[in-house]
Write a protein that binds this DNA or RNA. Structure first.
Length: 735
DNA sequence: CCGATCTAAATTTTT
DNA sequence: TTTAGATCGG
C-alpha cells in the first residue's frame, strides 16, 4: 500500500495530522472525530515514509486499545513491528529489561491495591503509628498523590509543615522500605521509577530515543506528571512527539492526571503543530447538542466546536423512575424492544457512575433473557481463590514477596500460625533475606519449635517443586501444578457450588491461551520468563480489557471505562444528585467539572439514541433512600430532550411541553396545597391559582407565614414533591 | 492453632 | 449487601 493511499477518505485536518511526520504535534480531537483512525493511519504513514515500524512507539490508555491498534496496523500492511502498549506495561517492561540500571531485581512483584494495603499496614506500624489513626487506605491515597507528582520521600519530608505532613512523610519512607524489602513495586512506582531512570541515565535515554524515533501518546489529557516526564524523556532530542486528546474528556484528575499537560503543550513545544478535529462522525445532532449544552457549563476550557452532518435522530430522553428496580426494568424493556425491532444486543451499552449500580441492571437483564457482559476484568483477579493461586505463583517468581507469602503460607490450613509467620518475617527482615528462603532453613529462625520448622520446610518445598515446573516454560502447567499440589481444592470442597473450581479452571484456561500466544510470536532473542510476563500482564489488566464487542451482548460498564468506545444505543443510569455528580465530588468546584466531563464522555459514546435515567428511590447498602435528579439534567437543552416518567403503574408517560415537564410543570397540574419552592423565599404551599390567561397568578403561603402572589409565566416557582421534603413537620403548614 | 460466629464498617471512579 | 476483623470455645 502506498503512503498516499493512507489519506483516502480523510478530511482536510485529518489528512494534515496523518501527513505530519517530524516535530511535535498536538491533535485536539473531539469525541467521535475519527481520532483512532487518524492515529493508526498516521503510524502507518510514518512506517511507509520516514521510519521502520520498530521505530514507532504508541502509548494508549488500555491494553485493549493497544492490541487493537497493532491489529489495525497489520491490516494496513505495515506489519506488527511497532510497539503498542500502556504507560504501565511499557514501564514495567523497561524496568525489567534495565533492572540493573534502575537498581531493581528483574523479578519484582507488582502490588495491586490489596497488596499495597497490606504493605501500607506494616509501614504504618513500622513508623510507630497506629493504623487506627492513620488508615492504610488514607495513607495510600496521600502517598499516591506524591508519586503522581513525582515527589520522593525525601522531598515529602523536607516540605512537610505540620505534624500530619511529617507523619505522611515518615510513613511514605517506611512504605517504600517495605516494598523494597519485598522486591516489589506498586502501580505508581512503575511510572515513577521509569521516569527517574530516564531522567538519571542519559545513555539509556539516548538508546531509547534511537530505538523509538516516533512517539505517540493517546489520551494525553489524562496523563499525570510522571507520565509527562516519561513522554518528554522519550522525545527530548528528536522531538517527534505526537499527543492526542481532548481536555473535555479528562476524567482522571482524582488519580493525579494533570489536565495542564495538554493545555500547556504549546508552551512546552512552541513549534508544535496543532490540529483540531471538530467534525463528529458518530452521533446524531440531537445527542451532540445535548452533550455540548452540558459541557459548555465548564469554565477554563479550550472549547472544540463540535458539529456533525449526520442525520437527525430521536430526541435525547430523560426518564424519571420510581426506584432503581424500576429503572433497571425500564432499561431491560427498552433493550428488548430494540431487539424485537431488529437491533442486536451488541449495539447497546448501559453506563453507571459506580459499580454497585450494575447489580440491579444485571438482575433485570437476566429476567428479560438479555445476554450481557460486565466490564469488570479486574474483579476476576480479586476473587479470593484466584488471588490465592496467584500468590503461590508470585512467590515462585519472587521469594521475597512477603505479602504473597503471608497470604498463602497457611492457606489451606497447614498448621503454620500467626506466631510462626511473625517469627519468620522478623528474622527475614533482620537477616535481609527473602522470607521463602528462610522458610526452607527454619533452623535459623530463633524460637521455632520442631513441629513448626518441619511445616515451614514442607511449605518451602512445595513452592520449590512448583518452581521446577515453571522452569519447563509452560504457564498453564505451572498453574495446574499449584492448584493440584497446594491442597487448595480440598479447602473449597465444602462449598458445594464449585464456583471456586470453575474460576480457577478459567484461570488455567487463560494461562493456556497465554502459552499459545507466546508460542505464536516466539522471539528467539526473548529470554524473559513466561510466568513473569504472564503475572505482569494480569497485574495490569483493566476492566475494559474483558469486553468483547463480538459477543453480541449488552455491555455494562462504569462511565470511566466507557472512554474511547461507542454504541448505537446508550443508557446512562443513576443520573442523580450525589451519584452523578458523586457526593464525594461536591467539596471542591473543580471536582464538579470533572463529573460533568464524565457525563459528557458517557453521552458522546452514543451513535443513535441516548437515554438518561434516574430513580426517585435508590437502594444503597440495603436501605432505601430518597434521591433527587442530577443538577446536570437541568443543563440539557429544552428542545432536544424528551422528558418521560415511569410511574408506579409501570406505564411510560410523555410530559409536555418537552423539556419543561421537570423544571416547570404545567401549572394547571398544581392543585391547591401543592408544595413549591422559590429561590428567594424557600418552601411554600400553593394556596390558590387565579386564572387570567397569561397573567395567571399563583398565591403561595411561605414558611414565614407570608402570602405572596406570582405571575406564573415569569415566576421562578418550582414544584416540589412532598416526600422530597423528608422529615419536615407537615403539621406546621396547617392553618 | 483452628474454625465458627459475631460485629462493625464500608463503597467512587482504576492502571 | 458484602466483607474484613475480632472473639472465643475446642
Amino acid at each position: 500500500m502506498q503512503a498516499e493511499s493512507l489519506l483516502e477518505g480523510l478530511t482536510e485536518p485529518q489528512q494534515a495530522a496523518v501527513r505530519h511526520t517530524d516535530g511535535p504535534l498536538l491533535v485536539l480531537a473531539g469525541p467521535g472525530s475519527g481520532k483512532t483512525r487518524v492515529i493508526t493511519r498516521r503510524a502507518a504513514f510514518l512506517a511507509r515514509t520516514v521510519a521502520r515500524p520498530e521505530q514507532i512507539l504508541a502509548i494508549t490508555f488500555t491494553n485493549k486499545v493497544a492490541a487493537e491498534m497493532a491489529e489495525r496496523m497489520a491490516r494496513l500492511g505495515v506489519g506488527r513491528g511497532l510497539t503498542c502498549s500502556t504507560f504501565h506495561a511499557f514501564c514495567a517492561r523497561l524496568l525489567r529489561t534495565y533492572a540493573d540500571r534502575a537498581g531493581l531485581n528483574p523479578n519484582f512483584s507488582i502490588f495491586d491495591e490489596a497488596d499495597q494495603a497490606a504493605a501500607m499496614r506494616s509501614a504504618v506500624q513500622r513508623a510507630g503509628l497506629s493504623t487506627e489513626n492513620y488508615s492504610p487506605a488514607r495513607m495510600l491515597e496521600a502517598v499516591g498523590r506524591c508519586k503522581n507528582d513525582m515527589i520522593l520521600p525525601e522531598e515529602c519530608a523536607r516540605t512537610a509543615t505540620d505534624f500530619a505532613g511529617r507523619a505522611v512523610a515518615a510513613i511514605y519512607e517506611q512504605y517504600q522500605a517495605v516494598l523494597a524489602a519485598q522486591n516489589a513495586l506498586d502501580f505508581d512506582d512503575l511510572l515513577v521509577r521509569a521516569a527517574l531512570l530516564l531522567g538519571e541515565d542519559p545513555r539509556l535515554r539516548d538508546a531509547l530515543q534511537e530505538r523509538f524515533r516516533y512517539v505517540l501518546v493517546d489520551e494525553y489529557q489524562d496523563t499525570n506528571h510522571a507520565q509527562y516526564l516519561i513522554a518528554r524523556g522519550l522525545s527530548l532530542d528528536h522531538r517527534n512527539l505526537c499527543v492526542t486528546g481532548d481536555p473535555d474528556q479528562s476524567i482522571y484528575a482524582w488519580r493525579g492526571a494533570n489536565i495542564g499537560n495538554i493545555l500547556r503543550f504549546e508552551e512546552d513545544f512552541p513549534d508544535a503543530r496543532v490540529i483540531r478535529l471538530e467534525q463528529n462522525y458518530r452521533s446524531t445532532p440531537q445527542i451532540l447538542r445535548a452533550a455540548g449544552s452540558v459541557i459548555r457549563r465548564n469554565r477554563g476550557r479550550k472549547p472544540l466546536e463540535l458539529w456533525t452532518s449526520n442525520a437527525d435522530g430521536p430526541p435525547v430522553r430523560v426518564v424519571q423512575c420510581e426506584s432503581g428496580e424500576q429503572e433497571a426494568a425500564f432499561v431491560a424493556s427498552e433493550i428488548r424492544a430494540h431487539a424485537e425491532a431488529g437491533g442486536t444486543f451488541g449495539q447497546v451499552a448501559v453506563f453507571y457512575r459506580t459499580n454497585s449500580l450494575s447489580r440491579q441492571i444485571e438482575t433485570a437483564l437476566q429476567q428479560a433473557r438479555i445476554s450481557y457482559q460486565v466490564a469488570r476484568g479486574v474483579a476476576f483477579f480479586q476473587r479470593r481463590e484466584i488471588k490465592d493461586v496467584l500468590a503461590y505463583l508470585k512467590l515462585i517468581v519472587n521469594p521475597a514477596d512477603a505479602v504473597a507469602l503471608t497470604r498463602i503460607i497457611n492457606v489451606p490450613a497447614r498448621g503454620i500460625g500467626d506466631a510462626t509467620v511473625a517469627a519468620l518475617l522478623k528474622q527475614a527482615e533482620a537477616a535481609g533475606r527473602p522470607a521463602l528462603e528462610l522458610a526452607a532453613s527454619p533452623e535459623e529462625i530463633p524460637g521455632i519449635r520442631a513441629a513448626a520448622a518441619a511445616r515451614l520446610r514442607a511449605f518451602a518445598g512445595l513452592i520449590a517443586e512448583a518452581r521446577a515446573t515453571a522452569r519447563q516454560g509452560s504457564v498453564r502447567d505451572t498453574v495446574e501444578h499449584v492448584v493440584r499440589h497446594s491442597g487448595l481444592i480440598a479447602g473449597w470442597g465444602r462449598d458445594e457450588s464449585g464456583e471456586e473450581l470453575e474460576n480457577v479452571q478459567e484461570l488455567i484456561h487463560a494461562a493456556g491461551a497465554f502459552d499459545r500466544r507466546r508460542a505464536g510470536e516466539a522471539d528467539p532473542g526473548d529470554r524473559s520468563e513466561p510466568l513473569v510476563d504472564w503475572l505482569q500482564e494480569i497485574s495490569l489488566v483493566s476492566d475494559v480489557d474483558a469486553v468483547d464487542p463480538q459477543r453480541g451482548a449488552v455491555t455494562l460498564m462504569t462511565l470511566h471505562a466507557a472512554k474511547g468506545l461507542e454504541f448505537d444505543l446508550v443508557f446512562i443510569t443513576g443520573v442523580e444528585h450525589g451519584l452523578l455528580p458523586h457526593e464525594r465530588s461536591l467539596q471542591q468546584p473543580g471536582d464538579l467539572e470533572e463529573e460533568r466531563r464524565l457525563l459528557f464522555v458517557g453521552m458522546t459514546r452514543a451513535r443513535r439514541a441516548l437515554t438518561l435515567t434516574w430513580a426517585r428511590w435508590r437502594e444503597q447498602r440495603g436501605a432505601l433512600r430518597r434521591t433527587s435528579r442530577s443538577v446536570f439534567l437541568k443543563e440539557l437543552p429544552g428542545e432536544e430532550v424528551a422528558w418521560l416518567k415511569v410511574g408506579e403503574d409501570d406505564r411510560t408517560r410523555y410530559d409536555t411541553p418537552a423539556g419543561e415537564a421537570e423544571d416547570r410543570p404545567s401549572f394547571r397540574a398544581w392543585p391547591a396545597g401543592a408544595m413549591v419552592r422559590h429561590p428567594e423565599h424557600g418552601l411554600g404551599r400553593l394556596e390558590r391559582v387565579e386564572p387570567a390567561g397569561r397573567q395567571t397568578r399563583a398565591v403561595v403561603r411561605f414558611m414565614d407565614g407570608q402570602m405572596r402572589s406570582f405571575v406564573l409565566e415569569f415566576s421562578e416557582l418550582q414544584s416540589v414533591d412532598p416526600d422530597e421534603i423528608g422529615d419536615l413537620d407537615n403539621a406546621r403548614w396547617e392553618p
